[in-house]
């Protein structure tokens, strides 16, 4: 096993054992923190497909995170008020079922990513960053003005949505759900990175002219990657809204996009567990430093600066050395 694989195993285990310990010690808040790491890590795993593998620096992934969140909020709010979403031409009712909400969140954010990607990918570099940011902000302001679903105040859901056979209000059970989804997404991302698609996407990032001269269209590859990426981040959004039992335009704000990107930079861009490690460090810092000062971000800023200057591979790069993408 490579050092990175060993470290990844350690991270997976630690993320599982910590909430189990908290459960034993009756510290539900700690379980919630671990759940937050798993969910935000999942959002980062999504972004990592676009950014890490595809080199697409999206500053608009909050859009997909928020769409996932609103998919949950809208469906659940209709279910709790017993008012159908629409009655004509066919009846669509709200739902409190997590699996259905996840599917809706996945599809809605995938469609959004497909549309946003189709337009944004016609640009590259700093223009791509700006146009994804612009789309994200459009959705943010749309959500603020959408008074039917709470506008600026957001939407509260009184009871967490259900998953067959589980009590999702029990923190440890909800954690397990988030953890399993995270692991599935990581498995998918790892297969993707080593697949034909991953090889081509990675090459198109490094040398688009070469891709074209062997008959590969970089635009199409990148659009598929962006769509997959947005869908996974959207799923994380649905879970995040369920964790808080609340969704608001904040989920769509550009700060959220920035935070997801920070997870990647902290943990290691294009590293499989980079987003999870980054999200964990972020949450830990937020908890510890946030106790001392509301301005804890200044410390995060220093850390980010150090990583960008001295450890481009992030924390995983420091621990496991340079990446090897063989076999």
């Amino acid at each position: 096993m490579t050092r990175e694989a060993t470290f990844n195993g350690f991270v997976s285990l630690a993320l599982l054992l910590f909430p189990l310990w908290a459960w034993w010690a009756d510290e539900p808040f700690m379980i919630t923190l671990a759940t937050k790491v798993a969910i935000l890590g999942l959002a980062g795993v999504g972004l990592n497909i676009a950014l890490g593998l595809g080199g697409l620096v999206s500053l608009g992934h909050a859009a997909f995170f928020g769409i996932g969140g609103y998919a949950m909020g809208i469906l659940a709010s209709h279910a709790q008020s017993y008012a159908p979403l629409m009655e004509w031409p066919f009846l669509i009712e709200g739902t409190k079922s997590m699996p259905i909400i996840w599917i809706v969140a996945l599809i809605a954010s995938a469609v959004a990513a497909l549309l946003i990607g189709a337009l944004s990918l016609r640009t590259s570099g700093v223009y791509f960053i700006m146009i994804t940011l612009a789309f994200g902000q459009m959705l943010y302001y749309f959500a603020i003005s959408w008074s039917a679903y709470g506008g600026e105040d957001g939407l509260s859901i009184y009871v967490r949505n259900g998953f067959p056979g589980m009590n999702t209000l029990d923190p440890i059970q909800f954690f397990i759900i988030a953890y399993v989804l995270l692991m599935i997404a990581i498995l998918f991302a790892s297969r993707l990175a080593r697949s034909a698609f991953g090889l081509a996407l990675n090459a198109a990032r490094q040398t688009p002219v070469r891709a074209e001269t062997v008959g590969i269209v970089p635009y199409r590859l990148q659009l598929v990657a962006f769509t997959l990426s947005g869908a996974i981040t959207g799923l994380a959004g649905a879970l995040f809204a369920d964790l808080n039992r609340f969704v608001s335009p904040t989920m769509l704000s550009w700060q959220t996009s920035g935070e997801i990107m920070v997870f990647l930079i902290l943990g290691g861009t294009a590293r499989l567990f980079g987003p999870v490690v980054g999200a964990a460090v972020f949450i830990i810092l937020e908890e510890i430093l946030g106790d001392f000062s509301d301005y804890w971000h200044i410390h995060l800023g220093v850390l980010l600066l150090l990583i960008v200057l001295f450890a481009r591979g992030g924390i995983i790069g420091l621990v496991a050395g340079e990446e090897k993408r063989h076999a």
Partner: peptide, 20 residues
């Protein structure tokens, strides 16, 4: 070298099997 092979043979959109 694999990149050339898969581009030429139109097998780019495979997401699961390790290409190597």
């Amino acid at each position: 070298a694999m990149l050339g092979a898969l581009g030429a043979h139109g097998r780019t959109y495979r997401f699961w099997q390790p290409v190597l």
